[in-house]
Amino acid sequence: MSRSVLVTGGNRGLGLAVARALAADGDRVAVTHRSGPAPEGLFGVECDVTDPESVERAFKQVETEQGPVQVLVANAGITRDGMSVTMSDTQFDEVLQTNLHAAFRVARRAVMPMLRARSGRLVFVSSVNALRGSAGQANYAASKAGLIGLARSLARELGPRGITANVVAPGYAHTDMTAAIDEQILAGITAQIPLGRLAAAEEVAAAVRFLASDAAAYVTGAVLPVDGGLGMGH
């Protein structure tokens, strides 16, 4: 059956790859975006995930268009990199607000109809750096690590109602974000990856697709790395 899916930050990068993969399976997929047009073939809703009123408006639009959200992919995220000793409170707080607080906010809103239906899928997009840390990204790593604790708490709370909560932890993938990294730095990162390459966005999307599927009905509270082996041992 076609499900109602919402992917936050689904207008580009990994989020777009996830949205397209689920749409290809026949799901009705909505994506949040802050500006510009929605991707072709997807239902777009303008939403600032850090604003509770904007989130509520977005959910109402999605519910009107395609019904209550049955699968939520919390993907929206930002970076504000800098060494910890010089990182401002604003840099730290902005990343936590967008990457962690907002994920909690959209999950809380999505869960209400899921509880009534006694069914639902929550998938949080974290990062390999949540597990291994990253110099210059204390704010980002902390926010992405927080998603793991959030998902596992929700898994315990919501499991009795048939709702699963899982985490995908991607490594470095071919996106606009990695395209902006200096070539020498990117080469150094690639050299640390056992598989010797960056991921395709579609490979990350495949992991999300699995966790959102019926095949993962007995998987909850899990962290699924898609990082080419970069985070092994963490």
Results as ranks from 00 to 15, higher is better:
residue 9 G to T: 05
residue 11 N to A: 15
residue 12 R to A: 15
residue 14 L to P: 08
residue 14 L to T: 07
residue 15 G to W: 05
residue 15 G to R: 03
residue 16 L to E: 04
residue 20 R to C: 00
residue 22 L to A: 08
residue 26 G to C: 02
residue 29 V to Q: 11
residue 33 H to K: 14
residue 39 P to C: 09
residue 41 G to F: 11
residue 43 F to P: 01
residue 43 F to T: 08
residue 44 G to N: 12
residue 45 V to P: 07
residue 48 D to A: 15
residue 49 V to H: 00
residue 49 V to C: 00
residue 50 T to S: 12
residue 50 T to D: 06
residue 52 P to E: 06
residue 56 E to W: 00
residue 57 R to I: 06
residue 57 R to C: 08
residue 60 K to R: 14
residue 63 E to Q: 14
residue 65 E to D: 12
residue 70 Q to T: 02
residue 73 V to T: 05
residue 73 V to I: 14
residue 73 V to D: 00
residue 74 A to M: 06
residue 76 A to N: 07
residue 78 I to N: 05
residue 79 T to I: 14
residue 82 G to D: 10
residue 85 V to Y: 13
residue 88 S to W: 12
residue 89 D to K: 10
residue 92 F to K: 08
residue 100 L to A: 02
residue 100 L to T: 02
residue 100 L to S: 01
residue 102 A to K: 01
residue 102 A to G: 04
residue 104 F to L: 11
residue 104 F to N: 01
residue 106 V to G: 01
residue 107 A to P: 06
residue 111 V to Y: 04
residue 116 R to I: 09
residue 118 R to E: 15
residue 118 R to V: 06
residue 122 L to C: 08
residue 125 V to H: 05
residue 128 V to L: 13
residue 130 A to I: 03
residue 132 R to Y: 03
residue 141 A to N: 02
residue 150 L to D: 04
residue 156 R to Y: 10
residue 157 E to S: 13
residue 159 G to S: 14
residue 161 R to T: 10
residue 161 R to F: 15
residue 164 T to H: 03
residue 165 A to N: 06
residue 167 V to T: 11
residue 168 V to L: 13
residue 169 A to L: 08
residue 170 P to C: 11
residue 172 Y to H: 11
residue 174 H to V: 14
residue 177 M to N: 11
residue 179 A to E: 13
residue 182 D to Y: 10
residue 185 I to G: 03
residue 187 A to N: 09
residue 188 G to E: 14
residue 189 I to R: 08
residue 192 Q to I: 01
residue 198 L to H: 14
residue 199 A to H: 12
residue 201 A to G: 02
residue 203 E to V: 08
residue 203 E to R: 02
residue 203 E to Q: 09
residue 204 V to L: 07
residue 204 V to D: 07
residue 207 A to K: 05
residue 208 V to E: 14
residue 208 V to A: 12
residue 215 A to H: 14
residue 219 V to Q: 04
residue 221 G to W: 05
residue 224 L to Q: 02
residue 226 V to T: 03
residue 227 D to A: 09
residue 227 D to N: 15
residue 228 G to Y: 08
